[in-house]
Amino acid sequence: MDAVSQRSTLVHDTVRLEQLVVAPLSAVWQAYAETAVRSQWSVPAGQSMVFDADDFHAGGRARYRCGTPGSMEFHGVIEYHFIEPEDTIVYTETVRIGEQLLASSLVSWEFIQEVDGICVVVTDQTTSYVGREMIDDSRNGHTIALEQLVSFLE
């Protein structure tokens, strides 16, 4: 893709979602912090996700594949920048399909104790290199993940 067509498909957006989870803070945190558990609830039904590595600490990196079972065409790299246990996670994420760069994001997860449970707030600031669809897919993916986190824990 040349510089002109790359520029014409560049899209930026911020997605902010909140979900109340009626469960103890420690359980909500562990559901995220444990990679094998996270991969169960964070992928939409009918899709697959495999973490090839997940060094879950500030300065750590994760590599994953996801998508259609059998092909898992999407490849992601996460760099964890800030982790405060049972409070906040901040990371950058880059997603590709083959050699094609699809999106880069700055993502934060906040776990806020409330009277009725834990309010999980996800803020995803994404730059898509391939148009609006990656922004919409990010919003949809986080929405589904949060809904499935509730089902997983409640």
Rank of each mutant, 00 (worst) to 15 (best):
Thr35Arg: 05
Gln100Asn: 14
Glu147Arg: 09
Ser39His: 04
Val95Ile: 10
Gly60Phe: 14
Ser42Phe: 05
Gln19Cys: 13
Asp137His: 07
Phe56Val: 02
Val4Gln: 13
Leu25Trp: 03
Val37Asp: 01
Glu34Ser: 06
Met1Ala: 01
Phe74Ala: 03
Ala103Ile: 05
Gly98Ile: 03
Pro24His: 00
Leu102Thr: 00
Val50Cys: 02
Ser71Lys: 15
Phe56Trp: 13
Phe74Thr: 11
Ile135Leu: 13
Leu10Gly: 10
Val21Trp: 00
Val120Gly: 06
Gly67Pro: 13
Ser5Ala: 07
Ser108Tyr: 12
Cys66Trp: 13
Asp137Thr: 02
Thr92Met: 14
Thr123Gly: 14
Asp2Phe: 11
Ile118Asn: 01
Pro69Leu: 09
Ser5Thr: 09
Leu102Ser: 05
Val15Ser: 14
Arg65His: 10
Cys119Pro: 04
Tyr91Val: 02
Met49Asp: 03
Arg96Thr: 15
Val21Leu: 00
Gly67Arg: 04
Ile144Ser: 05
Ala23Asp: 11
His81Gln: 07
Leu102Arg: 13
Val115Ser: 13
Gly76Val: 08
Leu101Trp: 15
Ser104Pro: 13
His81Leu: 03
Ala53Cys: 08
Ser105Met: 10
Ala53Asp: 11
Gln6Thr: 01
Arg61Asp: 08
Arg63Val: 11
Ser5Phe: 06
Val50Leu: 07
Phe82Gln: 15
Tyr80Asp: 04
Asp2Gly: 10
Gly70Tyr: 03
Asp137Ile: 00
Ser5His: 07
Leu101Thr: 07
Asp87Thr: 11
Gly70Cys: 06
Gly67Ala: 05
Gly117Ala: 14
Pro85Glu: 03
Phe74Asp: 00
Ile144Pro: 01
Glu18Ser: 14
Phe82Lys: 05
Asp116Lys: 11
Phe56Tyr: 03
Pro24Tyr: 00
Gln125Val: 09
Val120Ser: 01
Leu102Pro: 12
Thr14Cys: 05
Val90Asn: 02
Tyr80Gln: 11
His12Thr: 07
Asp2Ile: 13
Glu133Gly: 08
